[in-house]
């Protein structure tokens, strides 16, 4: 049974059809990538799957539960890292995780150990007690992943996990994601604008364009489908979502604005 399955999932905002008859199915234990130009609807899909947004129509099941009728159960089974850097700068790394451990009902006797495990796994053991305000972007992202995996969710949703990170910070995040999947068999659903990231991490990718799935397969199969010598995933992206200039939505502006605010408040 697939761990995520969407059927005709649709979401409209006033006059924008952000997600339009979206159908995918993700297998348990795979790293699945959702690619697409700005405003394609990637974040909106994730928000619906983690129960932040209610679909306008259509259905989806995550870990066997309907996102409409079983929202509470879905929440227990997923971890989520939003697109903007979102750890609490006024708390230490440890406290950020402690609060979440409590919200996820992790028993008191296990808390400290689980938190330390997650921090060490993400390479943050040494800075656990520093205020997050003093962290770099890469450290915040790793802290967020630590926070989202504390309760051992069956599916982890990462919305652009490496946006704004320098190459070495990015690589550190990739390694952790790959290891989460290999060691714990966690299903990982991520969005990205980096084809290299999708190519190296994801077993399968879907290319999303104007709210719909334009292509879905393994990176190798997608490249082969272009019938061109030495085709890259970049070529695939441009082939399926190439006229993206026409599709630029308000989303990109809003997100940039938010990212700046984050930088200002944390910095």
């Amino acid at each position: 049974m697939p761990i995520i399955e969407t059927t005709a999932l649709t979401r409209r905002f006033a006059d924008v059809l952000a997600v339009d008859d979206f159908n995918i199915s993700v297998d348990e234990g795979e790293v699945f990538g959702l690619l697409g130009p700005n405003g394609a609807g990637k974040t909106t899909v994730i928000k619906m799957l983690v129960t932040l947004l209610v679909p306008t129509s259509g259905e989806a099941a995550v870990a066997g539960w309907s996102i409409r009728r079983g929202a509470a159960a879905v929440r227990r089974n997923v971890g989520y890292v939003p697109q903007m850097l979102s750890a609490d700068g006024q708390l230490s790394g440890y406290e950020n995780l402690l609060i979440f451990a409590k919200l996820y009902d992790i028993p008191r006797r296990e808390r400290r150990q689980r938190i330390n495990e997650a921090l060490t796994f993400m390479g943050l053991g040494d800075v656990a007690n520093s205020l997050v305000r003093t962290y770099s972007g890469g450290m915040i992202r790793r802290l967020e992943i630590a926070q989202s995996m504390l309760h051992h969710p069956r599916v982890l949703f990462l919305d652009e996990p490496t946006v704004g990170l320098d190459p070495s910070a990015r690589r550190a995040v990739w390694e952790r994601i790959a290891e989460l999947q290999e060691r714990l068999g966690m299903t990982i659903f991520l969005t990205t604008h980096m084809m290299e990231e999708a190519d190296s991490l994801c077993r399968r990718v879907a290319i999303m364009h104007r709210g719909r799935v334009a292509a879905l397969d393994t990176p190798a199969a997608l490249k082969a489908s272009l019938d061109r010598e030495g085709a890259t995933l970049d070529d695939v992206f441009i082939h399926y979502a190439g006229d993206s200039l026409a599709a630029v939505g308000g989303g990109s502006y809003r997100d940039t604005r938010r990212a700046r605010r984050t930088a200002r408040r944390l910095g």
Partner: peptide, 17 residues
């Protein structure tokens, strides 16, 4: 509103709280 802009509200709402 600050915490929304930072994504903190999103994360809180996804916890079983």
């Amino acid at each position: 509103i600050w915490e929304r802009d930072l994504g903190l509200v999103h994360k809180m709402l996804v916890t079983p709280t």
